[in-house]
Design a protein around this nucleic acid. Structure first.
Length: 350
DNA sequence: CACGCGTGGTG
DNA sequence: TCACCAAGCGT
């Protein structure tokens, strides 16, 4: 399985990681690791869920706020749903936040607060798929799990000069990643692969001159490093339109609603509005003197949204009082809508 | 299994 | 400006 080349790559990678490992709030660095310190599984799990399809830079402050407010899995399990959704607001992919809370409650109530140590058991928990299960097993419990994220796909495709496109070639990349996974320090190896992919073996303009495994990189030898991994072309994003209605009461209260659990922005707070489609009908939540405040474009995973923001001053039952309304609790789209509405209202009334 | 699901940085 | 991309998962 692991012949001279694979073994040499693993050794070079670990030596590089020992020198260059990135410092992150959820990590135990190589030095502390060697001194016997191990990362807290709760923090590993929380960071890995936040990092799903999300950059390190975006996660840092969210991770700090979550761990300051909920230092362990029991504290998080006891949190109110609305508080967790508010703290997650802006990070995106809100199903992660709902599954995070479900998972915390299972671990807290059914597993006595201890995360499972095997990939098989971790996989059964909500929000933990093949990648996250492997990452927790490797990083928190130092199990020789295979950890394949977008970084590892790229690194492996380049090292072995795999030219077939994703996603079809993913199983082969996983097998190749398995060949590189050592029995010793698998957690450090997993983090080293991801650090290499995030810094040197980057998607565009890889810094091969600094790469610890360049001498064993078939992609570099073939001059293909910048083109790998190949990916199937993505369909164009359609444009949808919609209306959002921001009602502000005499004392500054705001009319908000919580969206359904499933679907786009599921479980988040927002302003009432129309459907989002090619040609939506206006859909004011009640009759009032609605004025157009402006519009915005927001891009989701699979479509662009052009949203027209309407405002009215009106008292309504069920408004969120001004003192309890924090725009930071809203997903980014709704925060943008609020910024437009607020500017219009303050300029119109002075 | 292909698709739905956010957001901010970047070239 | 805008398409692409990032430590994927659930259905």
């Amino acid at each position: 399985m692991r012949d001279g080349k694979e073994s040499r790559i693993g050794t070079a990678l670990l030596a590089w990681y020992d020198r260059e490992a990135r410092v992150m709030p959820w990590r135990t660095g190589p030095e502390a690791w060697r001194a016997g310190e191990r990362p807290d599984p709760y923090r590993v799990w929380l960071s890995e869920v936040m990092l799903q399809q999300t950059t390190v830079a975006a996660v840092r402050d969210y991770f700090r706020r979550f761990t300051a407010r909920w230092p362990d899995v029991h504290a998080l399990a006891a949190a109110a749903d609305a508080d967790v959704m508010a703290e997650w607001a802006g990070l995106g992919y809100y199903a992660r936040a709902r599954n995070l809370l479900k998972c915390a409650r299972v671990v807290s109530h059914d597993l006595d607060g201890r995360f499972p140590e095997t990939v098989e058991e971790l996989r059964k928990l909500p929000g933990i798929g093949p990648y996250t299960a492997g990452a927790i097993a490797a990083i928190a419990f130092d199990a020789p799990a295979v950890v394949v994220d977008g970084n590892v796909e790229r690194v492996v495709a380049r090292i072995f000069a795999v030219t077939d496109p994703l996603p079809g070639v993913k199983p082969e990349l996983t097998r190749l990643a398995e060949c590189l996974t050592p029995q010793e320090r698998p957690g450090c190896h997993a983090q080293a692969m991801m650090d290499l992919g995030a810094t040197i073996c980057s998607p565009r303009n890889p810094a091969c001159g600094l790469c610890p495994v360049r001498v064993d990189c078939a992609g570099y030898d073939a001059g293909l490093q910048a083109e790998l991994p190949r990916k199937a072309p993505k369909p164009e994003k359609p444009v949808r339109r919609g209306f959002a209605y921001v009602a502000v009461g005499p004392a500054g209260g705001v009319l908000l609603e919580r969206r359904p659990e499933k679907g786009l922005l599921g479980g988040t707070l927002g302003f009432p509005g129309s459907d989002w489609c090619e040609a939506p009908d206006p859909a004011p939540p009640f009759a009032a003197d609605w004025q157009e405040a402006g519009s915005l474009r927001h891009t989701f995973t699979h479509f662009h949204l052009d949203l027209t923001v309407m405002v009215a001053r009106a008292a309504r039952p069920g408004m969120t009082p001004k003192a309890q309304f924090r725009p930071a609790d809203l997903p980014t789209l709704m925060r943008k809508a609020w910024n437009i509405a607020e500017a219009a209202i303050s300029s119109q009334q002075g």
